[in-house]
């Protein structure tokens, strides 16, 4: 408990740090983006290339969220409800994607599916293009957001325990029925939280997608790649408009998360 003066100094440091690092830069970019009103922003966001970038981001994100939700719930049930050899290894492996650099993820996918590898060449022969195409971008996005649903769902599964599920089995429910009627309602807020986190990560991914997409404007360019490409080409208004749009989505996602969080405990 610092004295009144000490407390004030601590508060000043904390507020000052957050202002300098977060609030002021964000405020400035919003102010600059809307300096000439909302018209130019709307115009920049509805250009053909911007619309295409948003579509690519949206489709990649949707597929990644669905894949990671299904695998996340499945893996959580497996890791929490069952004991099997290699379980701890699997448990540790699942966290790895969060610690790996996005660029490394991109390189890894190129080394497996790229045209220079045997497997990549075989796929290309059969008309499947992974690198510099949507499948590679989906794989990259799935990789970087892999554990988010699992890590939200697993602790809740652990906490609710097995009794209610057992009761359902005793009463003759099938595994699917027990899951749908007992397990799913118990984990629904954690699941929603994990899905929202995955969505945020998928919409915002840059590094891994930058490597595997080839950054082809109007083809594999996502919203985040659009920001970078427009900025490097001195089209600041378009870069700012898309950045602020992505930031607005991020703030919206944060609000949803804050709405979901308190309900977890109840």
């Amino acid at each position: 408990m610092p004295s009144r003066g000490g407390r004030g100094a601590l508060r000043a440091v904390a507020v000052g740090y957050l202002l300098a690092l977060l609030a002021l830069p964000l405020g400035l970019i919003c102010w600059r983006t809307f300096a000439n009103g909302a018209g130019p922003v709307w115009h920049a966001l509805t250009s053909a290339s911007a619309r295409h970038a948003l579509e690519v981001t949206g489709s990649v994100a949707v597929v990644a969220v669905v894949a990671n939700t299904l695998s996340g719930v499945g893996l959580a049930v497996l890791l929490v409800r069952h004991r099997f050899p290699g379980r701890r290894l699997l448990d540790a492996l699942v966290d790895l994607p969060l610690a790996v650099s996005p660029v490394v993820v991109g390189l890894a996918l190129i080394l497996v599916y790229g045209r220079t590898t045997g497997f990549g060449a075989w796929l290309a022969e059969h008309g499947v293009k992974v690198i510099f195409a949507l499948p590679g971008m989906v794989l990259a996005t799935v990789f970087v957001s892999l554990p988010l649903v699992l890590r939200e769902v697993a602790p809740v599964l652990e906490e609710v325990g097995i009794e209610q599920e057992q009761a359902a089995w005793t009463l003759g429910a099938s595994a699917a029925q027990a899951f749908r009627r007992v397990t799913l309602p118990a984990i629904r807020w954690a699941l929603a939280y994990g899905v929202v986190l995955t969505l945020a990560r998928a919409l915002g991914e840059y590094g891994a997608v930058a490597v595997v997409s080839g950054r082809l404007v109007g083809k594999t360019q996502t919203a985040t790649l659009f920001v970078e490409e427009r900025y490097q080409n001195f089209d600041q208004p378009a870069a700012y408009a898309m950045a602020v749009a992505l930031a607005a989505v991020a703030v919206g996602i944060l609000l949803v998360i804050n709405l979901l969080r308190p309900r977890e405990g109840s």
Binding site: P25, L28, Y206, G207, T224, V227, A250, I253
Partner: peptide
């Protein structure tokens, strides 16, 4: 929550 490229730009 913010995309990293946006963080750099900001």
């Amino acid at each position: 929550a913010l995309p990293t490229i946006v963080a750099g730009l900001v």
